[in-house]
């Protein structure tokens, strides 16, 4: 589903050259849930943002469902409609109601009729458990509710892959659970997911594979049971001892 080969992303900041992603190669199979963990500044968010072209990369290849992002002929917009993304700061459209947030891209990008888009939106709102909020504006919702709307908005495009960029990091602790529940349900339904998170419990419970990144490189990867209980690298051990 996702094929990443030798991905390199370099930032130039005030004379410093930062290799934010430094030669990452991995493969995500259809229906697989991959969780990316690592310390702040390890390049995991940058890596995730390269997967749908929000961040351009300097070297390597990202192939989504047969479409290579490094190929100049690839229409990035065609790739993105197959790749849903959920952001740390939700990024709902504040000038539109919850329903319009979910309908807009369906109508504009997928060219669905208003009725079709609304039916889809209502079905997804029911799925994430906030059907009664459809005519509210995002500013009237709690963080957890906003993030669930954001997930519904991404799902409305019928994506083949969902990317989550620290979806619970901006939430009050009591709202983390409701968002994680939605994500767990998605994983059970067989959605292909790449999740950057600090929620180790979620990684342990849902992930098929965990990637540990540090300084732009994948230090260690493996099934969660093995990675969490018997990490091989010292860096992984140190990180896990600090967060668990």
């Amino acid at each position: 589903m996702i094929e990443v080969r030798d991905l390199v992303k370099i930032f130039h900041a005030r004379g410093h050259v930062v290799r934010a992603v430094d030669g990452v190669s991995t493969h995500v199979a259809r229906g697989e849930v991959v969780v990316v963990i690592g310390p702040s500044g390890s390049g995991k968010s940058t890596f995730l943002r390269c997967l749908n072209g929000l961040e351009t990369f300097d070297e390597g290849h990202v192939v989504i469902d047969g479409m290579d992002l490094a190929d100049k002929k690839t229409d990035i917009n065609l790739v993105r409609r197959e790749v849903g993304m959920v952001f740390q700061q939700f990024n709902l459209f504040p000038h539109k109601t919850v329903l319009d947030n979910i309908c807009l891209a369906q109508e504009v990008v997928r060219k669905r009729s208003r009725q079709e888009a609304e039916a889809k939106a209502r079905q997804l709102l029911a799925k994430v458990g906030i059907a009664e909020k459809e005519s509210e504006y995002p500013s009237r919702l709690s963080g957890g509710q906003q993030q669930r709307v954001a997930i519904a908005r991404a799902l409305a495009m019928d994506p083949k892959v969902m990317l989550f960029d620290e979806p619970t990091s901006a939430l009050d602790p009591e709202m983390v659970g409701e968002v994680l529940d939605v994500m767990k349900q998605l994983a059970r339904e067989g959605m292909t997911m790449v999740v950057v998170t600090h929620e180790m419990g979620f990684a342990r419970e849902v992930a098929d594979r965990v990637l540990f990144m540090d300084e732009g490189k994948i230090v260690e990867e493996g099934p969660p049971d093995k990675l969490f209980s018997a990490p091989e690298h010292d860096r992984t051990k140190l990180f896990l001892s600090q967060v668990l």
Partner: peptide, 11 residues
Amino acid sequence: GQMEAARSLGM
């Protein structure tokens, strides 16, 4: 984030 959200939806 607004532009990123819009672009990530394929707009």
